[in-house]
Amino acid sequence: MFVDSFIKTITLVSVWILPLLIVSIPLWALFKRVSLYDTFIKGAREGVGVGLKIIPYLVAILVAIGMFRASGAMELLAEFTSPVLDLIGMPADILPLAIVRPMSGSGALGIMSEIANQYGGDSYMARLAAVMTGSSETTLYVIAVYFGAVGVTKVRHALLAGLIADFAAILASLFICRIVFL
C-alpha cells in the first residue's frame, strides 16, 4: 500500500515538475521585474556553445567505448573475472551488464532487457539486473559531458570516485537482491 502511494506520488510529481518549472520560473522572474525575453535568450544562447563544445569530449569517450564493445573484449573480461565473481555471488549472465553500466546507458538497458526477456519479468535474474541498472549512472558519459562543457581535461579523482560508486552499487545490488528476492 505504502509503496503504491509512494510510486503514485513520485510519478505524479515527475510528470508535473517539468511544465510547472517552465511556467513558474518565468512567473517568479516577472514578479522580480527581470526582463523576461532578453534574459531567457541570453541564457539560451549559451546552450548552442555548450552543445558544440562537448562534441570532442564525447567523440573521444564514445569511440573508445564503441571499439571496446565491438572487439569482443567484454566477453574476454567476463571470462577472466568469473572466478572473482563467483566469490561475490554474481551470476555470470549479469556480468556484461555490470561492465557496460558505467559506459553506456542505452547499452545497459538493452542487456537488462535481454536478461528480463530470457528469464521472465518476475525472475530473480531480471530483478537483480533491474536493481543493478537503476542504482548507478553512466559514469564515463557523465564525466565526458559535464567536464567537457567547461573544458576541464584533468579530471583528478572524479573518475576513480565514480567507478568506486559504481562498484559499490553492484555489490549493494547483489546483497539486497539476495536478501529480498531469494
Binding site: P26, W28, A29, V48
Partner: peptide, 16 residues
C-alpha cells in the same frame, strides 16, 4: 540545453 540554460538564467537573475 538552450531551453534550460534560458530558464536557469531567469532563475539566476531573479535571485531564485
Amino acid at each position: 540545453m538552450c531551453l534550460w540554460l534560458g530558464l536557469m538564467k531567469l532563475a539566476e537573475e531573479s535571485g531564485l
